[in-house]
Computed example of a mutant assay.
Amino acid sequence: MKLLRSTVHPDIQNLDSQIITQRLATRAITMQGDDILLLYTERYHDYSLPGGGLDEGEEQVDGMIRELEEETGALSIRNVQPFGFYEEYRPWHKDNADVMHMISYCYTCNVDKKLGNTRFESHEINNGMKPVWINLHEAIEHNLKTIELSEKKGMSIERETFILQMIADKKQQKES
């Protein structure tokens, strides 16, 4: 799988002197026409790809399917293909670590437009997370405004917006 981007959060000055923990995650890219299946999170006022951390020993595709089903209620997940991975180092103050090294493995897939029931975790419910089909370009524009104007944005919005812009670019290239 190809590297999409590698980033280091601006608050991290030097990785050599840090205690680093690693988190492996997956993200699902599901489109129908110009609409993409995303999660809207009220707390952060942003759109993100469905996905999350892999369980110990879990295969990447299995984790992506599990997260997609849990967070969106997606039905009939099929045609799973690798898209690329995004690597980031960001501040972390748990697990006796200073920095989290997050690797998000992204996959494209198809699902039915109609969604089933979600199985959100309590923090996802508390953050006001909900699955939505939205126009890809509207989601990008919304996130860009949140990055520019919101004080409550989360740390993942830059990653999510970068990946959404890559999706839009690849879609435009295919249509040209």
Rank of each mutant, 00 (worst) to 15 (best):
E58R: 10
L37N: 02
T72K: 08
H45M: 14
D46S: 12
Q32A: 04
E69L: 00
E56K: 15
E70W: 13
A74M: 07
D35L: 11
I77T: 00
Y47R: 01
D34N: 13
D34M: 06
D46T: 12
E42D: 15
D55I: 11
L39H: 05
H45E: 15
G53D: 13
D62S: 13
T72A: 07
T41P: 03
M64S: 02
Y47T: 02
E58N: 09
D62F: 04
G73Q: 10
L49N: 04
D35E: 14
Y47H: 07
E67K: 05
D34K: 13
Y44I: 04
T41R: 12
L75I: 12
L75C: 03
Q60V: 11
I65V: 15
T72C: 05
G51C: 00
M64H: 02
L75Y: 04
D35W: 05
S76I: 09
A74G: 07
E70N: 15
L37G: 03
Y40W: 12
Y40M: 05
L38E: 06
D35V: 05
G73R: 06
Y44F: 13
D34Q: 08
T41V: 15
I36Q: 01
E56C: 06
G33N: 00
D34T: 12
L38I: 01
E71T: 07
S76R: 14
M64F: 09
L37S: 08
L37C: 10
L39M: 14
L38G: 01
D46N: 15
Y47E: 04
L54K: 07
E69N: 10
I65A: 07
L37F: 04
Y40G: 11
L49M: 10
L37R: 02
G51T: 00
E42N: 15
S48E: 14
G33I: 07
Y44E: 09
L49F: 01
A74W: 02
S48A: 11
G51Y: 02
E70H: 14
E71P: 02
E59K: 12
P50R: 03
D34W: 08
M64C: 05
D35K: 13
L39V: 13
P50F: 08
Y44K: 06
E71I: 01
D34I: 03
Y40V: 04
L38M: 07
T72S: 10
E67S: 09
I36H: 06
G63W: 07
L68F: 05
S48R: 12
D34A: 09
G53R: 10
L68A: 06
I77P: 09
Q32R: 12
D62W: 10
Q60F: 14
E70K: 13
G52I: 03
E42P: 10
G52D: 09
L49S: 00
E56Y: 13
G57R: 08
I65K: 12
P50C: 09
G63R: 07
